[in-house]
Write a protein that binds this DNA or RNA. Sequence first.
DNA 1: CTGAAAGCGCTAACAT
DNA 2: ATGTTAGCGCTTTCAG
Lengths: 341, 341
Amino acid sequence: MARRLNLEEIGRRAGVSRSTVSRVVNGEPHVRSETKKRVEAVIAETGYRPHAAARSLASNNTGVIGLVIPSAVETLFDDPYFGRLILGISAATNEVDMTLALFLFGEEPDEGSIIYRVVTPGLVDGVIVTATTRGDPLIDHMQGADMPFVVIGRPDSARSTFCVDVDNRGGARAAALHLAALGRRRPALIAAPSNTTAGVDRRNGFLEGLSEVGLSVENRIREGDWTQGSGREAMSLLLTERPDAVFVASDRMAVGALRAISEAGLNCPGDISVVSFDGLVPPDLTMPRLTSVVQPVTEVGKRATRLLRSVIDGTSTTPEHVVFPTRLAVRESCGSAPPGS
Amino acid sequence: MARRLNLEEIGRRAGVSRSTVSRVVNGEPHVRSETKKRVEAVIAETGYRPHAAARSLASNNTGVIGLVIPSAVETLFDDPYFGRLILGISAATNEVDMTLALFLFGEEPDEGSIIYRVVTPGLVDGVIVTATTRGDPLIDHMQGADMPFVVIGRPDSARSTFCVDVDNRGGARAAALHLAALGRRRPALIAAPSNTTAGVDRRNGFLEGLSEVGLSVENRIREGDWTQGSGREAMSLLLTERPDAVFVASDRMAVGALRAISEAGLNCPGDISVVSFDGLVPPDLTMPRLTSVVQPVTEVGKRATRLLRSVIDGTSTTPEHVVFPTRLAVRESCGSAPPGS
DNA sequence: CTGAAAGCGCTAACAT
DNA sequence: ATGTTAGCGCTTTCAG
């Protein structure tokens, strides 16, 4: 009967104490290379791996970071956004041998819900919170708890948190300027939900850009709910206003908008220029290919992970806002298709 | 200076020992209701939460299950499949207050890679392994390790593992029969990678269905790599063979196939019937709406989680294969659109 | 019904 | 350079 493999047992077999084994396992410097070799041999042949929970308990860190994705996930997971974000975070945690725990909220956070589980001591070292809606109670909850966290997106109030966001406002503004430069005079807007900060920022950025060049959406504005269906419906309603361009605050809604345009017998970009936000759907998914404001989601995930690590280890103490720039990828849907883009 | 909240401290404040507090926390029966009330009051007012690592160490279970998604994730995450799967698993873990840890492999599993981290003792209670390719070394690795696991999909060799799969073969066969019933005589196949068991099963099922009704694909067969682009390319190559129907082994490849058909100036379903496998893309994404063999991904995730729990707690000991049925959702792309589907 | 005490396997001072 | 020791906070016998 193989006795349970632990430091003591490895030490016994290598003829050293458990401390020495611990030192070897953790790559500490002051071990004679001969001893080290012997211990490593035993570890290799036994396949010993240190017990994670014991380690966490003694060292007071778990090597796990949590990713919290609240509510509406059903809808949200059809969006490539979260997949990409997870990819980025996962790449960053793998790099430093940490583990990613995923906390997906269901509907309303009831008692004993995930929201409490996230702040359980000894479970994760810190968490990344996503999908910021305005007045998100989760943020308050995290602030009250003794748990390092960073926010992806911009929390609505200027509370002191660490966060990583993209320049939603600047990106949307660039879209407006681009459409204006193409000579469009009756721009429309299909906005994202106004209870999200990203939605608000994209809307404001677009309106701001328009007004800089003397344009306005007037009543050519609708709000979608991120889904393709809502984009389609919004577009079909907007068509009665005869817009010659539309900025759609997300890729998925833009796919719906394209569909509405084509169903109405109109041509994109001939009759209407379309620019979307996100840059997450493969260009070939749509005809014509979508011009989009591209946000670097995977990078955001990586950066958030690194920032969180620095918060955890105390390197970062002053709340910090990281903002990634966006970039306009011009393709066919806006009526100008420079070669090679 | 608030001392660290632990059982001892809660006990002190409630005037009982830490054992009693432990009993209350774990809902054990033999506690006088008055004592229990007092303890609960203290817990509520202090916001005490038991330390997860300490608990794991003492009780030898972590309350965490791992989900392993190996290689090719970059590509795979554009597919709604993994999102849905995660949703199902997450729903099932939330139900029983467990936590989900996500292990995404990068490229080749090098030394010290995730593959080893997954089997760290005291980190997770068990793992769910996905995306089975033929001869997957991960399965061997898991069998060697002392870690409960279940496989989603069908491992290629009939090794003794717990697994949850969908009836790929039966679903593909149904697609063949359906196309034949519609009067199609020159069926084509865009297969999924033959290094995956799902790809093999879908291919075999389709061919089997055809041969049952005296049809064959002859040389009207290509293999894609799950991506939309590969579906498009495969279809455009197949067109020279003048097929009047095609079964595409995944939704995403089918979207590409539809594009190729339309680019060739042909009409679906007029000239070519299309049936896909998965049922994961929203029907409204494509024109015409796709007829698909629908697989219950979220259910698979839930079931796998429950099965894993029973393996962990020793309820299930004999390797068990759960197979979910698929269902054919008939829509416009196959040339028959019954009302209400 | 409740308390005392012995670990779970590890890290981290402190000795040597 | 290595061993000894004292916990980390909890569960779990075992007494009472």
